[in-house]
Design a protein around this nucleic acid. Structure first.
Lengths: 232, 232
DNA sequence: CGTTGGTTTGATGGAGATCAAGCCTCGTGG
DNA sequence: CCACGAGGCTTGATCTCCATCAAACCAACG
């Protein structure tokens, strides 16, 4: 949780994150309020129920937004990729847990001061609205991915989504990448069990649609086929 | 699609919708851009793939946001209740269909002009951001409601959610209300089949947890029990 | 090494999908 | 006024996919 001065000039997400909507002077002002924070895999950034007094932009790594249900099982509601924004500006307390899936770097801001900047620089508000709309669209896409689809369709769709996320641009998905999540996390995202996810992956490998490098590495051998499998 | 002048003064959602963030003068300006529109059950407001050139606030009634998958089945991604906002301000084309579930009244605005007002009145942008965040939270709640839960839990949770929506305030849910949706629409929302939804409802009735008035009416006989059933 | 956390594989059972009738209820027209 | 039909709803019988239970495997690490 070291409080370094922010180095926006060399920030890898400087033109994709919400703060990209600001000009240099405005960004400079915002940067004086924030600080960098590093998380290791498994570290918790926000805890459900805590005061919602900070927000953050993800610079590198990956986060999960999750919830523990009444029976103690974790449900992953969303993944956050670099340039993503987390934190609730309107609720007094956090609704969900936000946890690092891999080692991650963030820009963290005190919520109060961030809100004050939002009101002073409406362009930032617009950028947040755009991000929020995109998150909403993504959440609905995930819902569509889960409902009324078989385990095979869900896993295929998930792999395609991760390929897009891995390359940063949806136009040309990566054909070889590492999953940032464990089998259990995939299962939680897709509403399946670990075993079913594992079986679907071995099946895809047997059918020569993908190859696996260790537990996390994925290579697409037949991306087109994967697409038709996902579409069902 | 009659173009009446908007009557904000008597609008039933005037202090809950996004435009509530504006003062009277600003709202007057916005109102000159919009027009009222009535939809009958089943009417389509926006069609997936069409140019996203309008947005709207729901005054009364109920809408569904839906998507047709590759196999031709409709998936309902969200319900919209009065004071809700629909339309995409950032995408060039609509991602989803927006269809009336019951006869509905809306305020419709040309997107271009609405955006222009948003930039001029940042308070409106903030209000939209707040709405969007709430929609996002609701979408995630629906995801949590669907994943890893049995059919009984989903239906119970759905009934509670509808009771809250029917009364407008989450603090005191209605104990007697009409569902705005058909069995098929419930099934689509919950990722179940019509038959399963029907069976769960008859089961709840047999167990004296609810009573049914015709096909759409629901009375809670034992709301507490319904809550424990939903929690699982 | 042994331990630990994640992953794979196998055997079994059950919740819910699917297939197939029958049943209300409302609106239309003879 | 009643017959009729069309949607929507309920109920039953069967089947299937995935959860569950159980055990072995693998790699990293102290």
């Amino acid at each position: 949780m070291a409080a370094n001065p922010l180095a926006c000039a060399s920030c890898p997400v400087r033109d994709r994150a919400a703060c990209a909507a600001l000009d240099d002077g405005q960004r400079g002002e915002l940067s004086r309020l924030g600080f960098h924070r590093s998380l290791k895999r498994g570290d918790t950034l926000f805890h459900a129920g805590d005061d919602s007094d900070h927000c953050a932009t993800l610079i590198s790594g990956a986060l999960k937004i999750a919830q523990i249900d009444a029976s103690g099982t974790e449900h992953i509601l969303a993944l956050v990729h670099p340039a993503g924004f987390v934190g609730e500006l309107f609720a007094p307390v956090a609704h969900h847990d936000v946890i690092a899936l891999t080692d991650s770097q963030l820009c963290v801001f005190p919520r109060r001061q961030y809100e004050e900047v939002v009101t002073r620089f409406p362009a930032l508000g617009r950028a947040l609205l755009r991000r929020s709309s995109e998150d909403l669209f993504e959440s609905r896409a995930l819902m569509a991915l889960m409902t009324g689809r078989t385990a095979g369709q869900r896993v295929a769709g998930f792999l395609l989504a991760m390929a897009n996320a891995a390359s940063g641009s949806p136009c040309h998905p990566a054909s070889s990448f590492d999953l940032p999540v464990t089998r259990g996390e995939i299962a939680s995202l897709l509403g399946l069990t670990i075993e079913t996810v594992s079986r679907q992956l071995t099946r895809l490998e047997k059918d020569r649609v993908i190859a696996r490098n260790g537990a996390r590495g994925i290579d697409f051998l037949d991306a087109a086929r994967l697409g038709t499998l996902a579409a069902g």
